[in-house]
Amino acid sequence: MNNFRRKTKKQAVAALGLLTALCLVATQALAMTGREIYEQVHALRIRALDRQTTFTMTLFDKGGTTRSRTATEYSKKAGEAGYKVLVVFQTPPDLSDVGFLIHARTFADRDLWAYFPEFKRIRRIPTTSQDDSFFGSDFSYDDFGGPPNLDDYAFTLLREEVQEGRACYLVEVVPKIQRKWSRYQAWVDKELFVHRKIIYYREQEPYRIGTFTAIRLVDTLPTAFRMEMHNLKTTHRTEVTLEDIRYHTQHPDELFTQRALERAGR
């Protein structure tokens, strides 16, 4: 009887130990909060701000026809929490030399301009348009901007999941500011801290799904060479393929002026 009790006690201690160990592992895995995960994502995006990217954007409508746009994005970090971005289209013909300029004084405070050669005039764009379609695509202007202001969002780590064979944090992001989506759920690569997948919601309905694949290290920065955004409402989708990317570029400030916008970055 005593032997049985001793044996049971040992088993209980072992089970408790195992449980404790499991809890410790689990606690370690969930040690990061949603905010901390996004601070990592944010830090990476800031490191990636000095760059030049050439990309092709292909639009697929539900009838199967495609249209494509090619563009170059120039980007530069400006100060502690600011950045500048210039995007210039090369094709199609009616978008050739159309440009889009961002001056972000801070991550929360930015000015946007667009230039249309057909009108020879630069127009200011309200930041409330940041969620609008980027030149007919399923991406938004914001998708081509710099990192957001983290304080404008609430982050909640939901769980961990494997996405496309990679261990990911599943984080829910809810805006505290006015956006045209109510929340999104993002699968953030546990090792690389880049997005693998995002589902945007309007109210409770998912309406846009983004996937980020062909992730490769370029100058130690993980970079998705293929991005797809699928609009569930319209069944329209857009694929962005990076043709070329260079980091640590040191673009002059003159590249991010209205003069440069008018001359398509030349």
Binding site: D111, R123, R124, I125, P126, T127, T128, S129
Partner: peptide, 9 residues
């Protein structure tokens, strides 16, 4: 002159 006021340019 031009300015952005909320959602209006």
């Amino acid at each position: 002159a031009s300015a952005v006021v909320g959602p209006v340019s």
